[in-house]
C-alpha cells in the first residue's frame, strides 16, 4: 500500500472503484435503506420528517462520535450510558431550580470530563482492560446517580436545556447544529490535528507507535476524556429532548453508539474509523430503527435487528479487510 507512487497510476474507473471500496458499510446501507424507504414509506423523505429524525439522532450521533475516539484508539467506552444517566439526573436536580442554566450545563459537562478522565487514568496507569474498567466505572457512576437522585429524579430542568434538546431555529433543530459542530470538530481532530494521527497509529499498532515515540498513554487518556465529554454533551441534549429526569436513561446508548461506530467503518481493535463514517452510521441506525417503528416492529425485534446489523457489518468489514 505504501509504494503506491512507484506503481503506474490506475485508470480512473479503477480508482473510483478503489475509493468506493473504502467507503464505510454505513454509506451503502444508508443508500439501500433510503431507496427502500422511498418506495414503501415516501413520507420518510419529506423535509419535516428528516428534521425530526435529525433531532432524534443528534444525541446518539454525538455520543457515537466520542465512542469513535475510543474505538479508533483500540479501546472501548462502555460507560457512556451511565454518563448519560448521570447527566440527566444532574440537570434535572432540584438543586438547580432557579439557577442560571449555565450552572447545571457546566456541572454536567464537567462530570462527563471527570468520568472520561477517570477511565483514561485507570486504563493507562493501571494498564487494566478498558472493557472492565469502563464497566466498573459505569457501575460506580450509575450508583452515584442513584444516590444523588435518591431513587426519585427531579423535574427541575431549565428551559434552556429543553431548548437545546428539542428547540428549532426556523426548521432546523438546535441539537442537530450541536451534532454538526461536534462532527466537524471530530473531523478536524482525526484528519488535521496530530492527535488524530497519534490515535490512529496507537490504535493500529500500539507497540510500533510506542517505539516511534508516540505518547501512546497520553493519547489513550485523551481519547477517553473526549469520549466522556461527548457522552455528557449527548446526555445533555437527550435530557433536553426528554424534558424530565428519569432513572436509567441512556442504557441502550452503549450498544447503539458502538453499532454506529462499527457501521461507520471502524474496525474493532483500532486503527480505522472516522467522523464521517460514524455520522453515516448513526443516520443509518436511526433510519432503520424508525422504519421498524413504522412497520410496527417492537423493541424485541429492534434488539435483534440491531444485533444482526452489528454482527453483519463487523464480519463483512473484517473479511474484506483480511482479503486486502
Amino acid at each position: 500500500m505504501s509504494d503506491a507512487s512507484t506503481r503506474p497510476k490506475p485508470s480512473f474507473p479503477r480508482q473510483l472503484l478503489r475509493a468506493m471500496k473504502e467507503f464505510p458499510p454505513a454509506f451503502w446501507g444508508l443508500i439501500a435503506v433510503l431507496i427502500f424507504a422511498a418506495f414503501t414509506q415516501p413520507q420518510f423523505l419529506s423535509l419535516p420528517f428528516i428534521m425530526i429524525l435529525l433531532r432524534q439522532a443528534a444525541p446518539l450521533g454525538i455520543v457515537a462520535l466520542g465512542q469513535t475516539f475510543a474505538v479508533a484508539n483500540r479501546s472501548l467506552d462502555l460507560s457512556v450510558g451511565a454518563v448519560i444517566a448521570l447527566v440527566n439526573i444532574l440537570v434535572s436536580d432540584r438543586l438547580f431550580l432557579g439557577a442560571p442554566a449555565i450552572l447545571p450545563i457546566s456541572v454536567a459537562l464537567v462530570a462527563g470530563l471527570a468520568v472520561g478522565l477517570l477511565n483514561g487514568v485507570l486504563i493507562t496507569a493501571l494498564r487494566a482492560s478498558a472493557v472492565v474498567v469502563t464497566l466498573g466505572t459505569a457501575s460506580v457512576v450509575t450508583g452515584v446517580g442513584f444516590l444523588i437522585s435518591g431513587g426519585a429524579p427531579g423535574n427541575a430542568m431549565s428551559d434552556t436545556i429543553k431548548f437545546l434538546g428539542r428547540g428549532r431555529i426556523d426548521m432546523f433543530p438546535v441539537s442537530a447544529i450541536f451534532w454538526l459542530v461536534t462532527a466537524v470538530l471530530s473531523y478536524i481532530i482525526f484528519r488535521k490535528l496530530i492527535l488524530g494521527r497519534f490515535i490512529m497509529a496507537a490504535g493500529d499498532n500500539p507497540s510500533a507507535a510506542r517505539y516511534s515515540g508516540i505518547p501512546v498513554k497520553q493519547t489513550l487518556l485523551l481519547s477517553h476524556v473526549l469520549s466522556g465529554f461527548f457522552a455528557a454533551l449527548g446526555g445533555l441534549l437527550l435530557s433536553g429532548l426528554i424534558g424530565v429526569g428519569s432513572l436509567g436513561l441512556g442504557a441502550d446508548y452503549v450498544l447503539s453508539s458502538i453499532a454506529a461506530v462499527i457501521l461507520g467503518g471502524a474496525i474493532f481493535g483500532g486503527g480505522a474509523g472516522g467522523a464521517v463514517g460514524t455520522v453515516l452510521g448513526t443516520m443509518l441506525l436511526t433510519v432503520i430503527l424508525n422504519l421498524m417503528t413504522v412497520f410496527g416492529i417492537d423493541e424485541a425485534g429492534k434488539l435483534m435487528v440491531q444485533g444482526l446489523v452489528i454482527a453483519a457489518a463487523a464480519i463483512i468489514y473484517q473479511k474484506s479487510n483480511a482479503a486486502r
Binding site: 484508539n73 483500540r74 479501546s75 472501548l76 485507570l122 486504563i123 493507562t124 493501571l126 494498564r127 487494566a128 482492560s129 478498558a130 472493557v131 472492565v132 474498567v133 464497566l135 466498573g136 466505572t137 459505569a138 457501575s139 460506580v140 457512576v141 450509575t142 450508583g143 452515584v144 442513584f146 444516590l147 431513587g151 500500539p206 501512546v216 498513554k217 489513550l220 481493535g269 483500532g270
Partner: peptide, 27 residues
Amino acid sequence: SPFYQHVVKGTMLIISVSLFRRKELGL
C-alpha cells in the same frame, strides 16, 4: 442502601483487574 452496592461492585471490578499488570494497553 442498594445504591451503594453499584458503587462497591464497580470499585471491586476495577480493583480486581488492576491487581495484575498486563503488557497491553487499552482493550
